[in-house]
Design a protein around this nucleic acid. Sequence first.
RNA 1: GGCUCUAUCGUCUAACGGUUAGGACGGAUCCUUCUCAAGGAUCAAAUCAGGGUUCGAUUCCCUGUAGAGUCACCA
Length: 434
Amino acid sequence: MEQKKVVTRFAPSPTGKLHSGAYRTAIFSYLFARKNNGKFILRIEDTDKERSTKENEGNILESLNWLGLEYDEFFRQSENVNRHKEILEKMIGDGHAYISKEEAKDGSGIIKEIVRFKNPNEDVSFVDEIKGLITMHTADLGDFVIAKNINEPLFHLAVVVDDFDEGVTHIIRGEDHVSNTPRQILIQRAIGAPTPIYAHLPLVLGDDKQKLSKRKGALAITEYREQGYLPEALLNMVSMVGWNPGTEQELFSKEELIKEFDLAKVHKSPAVFNQEKLNWLNKEYIKKLNTEVLKNKIFEFLPIELQNEKLIPIISDRITKFSDIKEMVANKELDFFINAPAIDISKINYKDTAPEKTKEYLENVIKILESIPDFNLENIKNTIMEYANTLPSRGEVLHPMRFTLSGLEKSPDPFTIASILGKNETISRLQKAI
RNA sequence: GGCUCUAUCGUCUAACGGUUAGGACGGAUCCUUCUCAAGGAUCAAAUCAGGGUUCGAUUCCCUGUAGAGUCACCA
């Protein structure tokens, strides 16, 4: 028997920005399709005209693009209403649905012709790829509404018809949809559509252990981008919530994820999204960046006067996300590069070293520095350390030197700063302090 | 409340019914140039509870407890 080609879809409604919870279902659908050489469809579910916006649709497209989840086909549900209407009419003709004249729920008193599904009231069972056999009674659902009127289909009807027409074989979606599944299966049976394979993913929770949502402060994918997270870090992070390949590997490229992905290993239980781990992953991916990309990313967050390649190493080691650079700048951590710092002379001595001694050390440091022909990091470090090692404590010379150059209690080491500043500026600052 | 689902370190997780219950993030301690960062090392930290089944349960079954999702003319 020939294996049917796998078709998955991601079907967000453009009623908000795309956040990690929704994005996780997108990536699992994507990975599963790619893993099986199948097709990945993006379908915008915009049948709710009041809440859907073009901005949100744009945000979804942008997010998917940024993360590298390319889709093979694109649909907009609102463009299928004629097809929905056709099915609706057929269902009414078949007796599977009927028009019901009812007063509008908003209390306006207007009588509307809504379409209700004729519920056969039978128990519905389906085997979920992740959760196993699920059985539900549908009698208590009653004759649920499937269209506001013949021209305005509602979620359940539209989803079933579109999935059928688009040949979707695997519906991978959030667990919040399990209770919708029996309704949709009932509609499938009524219109003679096959029931696809369902895989309901455990939810992604926030710190409060509640479903991640816009209201709960879940960050939109585009907000992560604006904060200077790398798409590969977010992709890696989100892929590993609710699933992992069972090895001890932590870092995965998109290709590796596709290779390893296995629906059978997806968890049944919900998981909390761990920001700290995302930060760590992001740092790992920053380390992997090639120098040119790294430079561009860093400069993006740096004021013109600080856009100097010499600062890249001390910045890249000190950030977890690129927006951290803004804080470094705000805290004046990089000011030593453009201005000789105004130093608080009372803090220049190492512990209780006498000021005269500190002065002597600094004078010696200048002599040593002057004698260095090639003023680079290695040479500075070697010669100064050689001198510092002759003292009871290396801090007696390292501290005043570093403090003089940076003006900060916490800063990169004195050798690095000196090499960035260059010989003349370094010596001039030391002289001033003396 | 009805229905559905879930339960291993604080968090993400690993463990054909047999392991000193493993890894990662975070935390603590130490080392590595005074400090910061980075790096290295070490440590603390978990099987929700109670019953079964079994020679043996984290693992299978039942009950309880706790948590989550969902109950629209939203999706």
